[in-house]
């Protein structure tokens, strides 16, 4: 009985909040298979830590914290892995066929600009656009508030430059 209610509660939460996870997977992984794998991995990590989640923080904050940790762990593992494995032509064909997200032009420009930021900067701008305060961003990413503030200023300059080259004009 308890198992069912725990599962139902978790499913309700993920069904309503999965948009957050998909948006992060889309930013960090260009291949649809990688995005799918990462989505599954994040959901499993959330499920594992769900019993200890006691609403001390907002649901979305908890999801972002675990999702970003899982993504950073995966990226660290990928970077540590040697890159000298040869790929066959078939792999390239599959990659090309399944890589891109279908986005409208304006959204694609924003996505393209954010995609060029560093892994940490992507996380910071995502949380900023989700209207988290500097203190909350610092807490989620275990950074200092000053570091977050400095990085947001730099991100602003970078994004302005990247978006202007694509023809966007902001005040």
């Amino acid at each position: 009985m308890a198992k069912v209610s725990l599962q139902e509660e978790f499913l309700r939460l993920i069904t309503t909040q999965q948009k957050l996870i998909h948006s992060l997977c889309g930013l960090y992984f260009s291949q649809s298979e990688d995005r799918k794998d990462m989505f599954q991995e994040i959901v499993l990590q959330l499920w594992k830590s769900f019993p200890s989640f006691k609403n001390q923080s907002k649901e979305s904050t908890w999801i972002y914290r675990i999702a970003l940790n899982t993504i950073f762990t995966k990226l660290r593992k990928d970077k540590a892995r040697p890159k000298n494995e040869p790929y066959s032509d078939d792999v390239y064909q599959i990659s090309e066929a399944t890589s891109s997200l279908e986005l409208t032009q304006a959204t694609q420009e924003l996505y393209g600009a954010i995609e060029q930021l560093s892994d940490l900067d992507k996380a910071i701008i995502t949380l900023y656009l989700e209207e988290y305060s500097y203190d909350e961003i610092a807490s989620i990413l275990t950074l200092s508030r000053t570091n977050v503030s400095t990085r947001i200023n730099r991100i602003k300059v970078k994004l302005e430059r990247l978006l202007k080259t694509n023809g966007h004009e902001f005040r």
Binding site: H22, G26, L101
Partner: peptide
Amino acid sequence: ESYKTQVN
């Protein structure tokens, strides 16, 4: 917001 909706 538009990006999130489209990806979702």
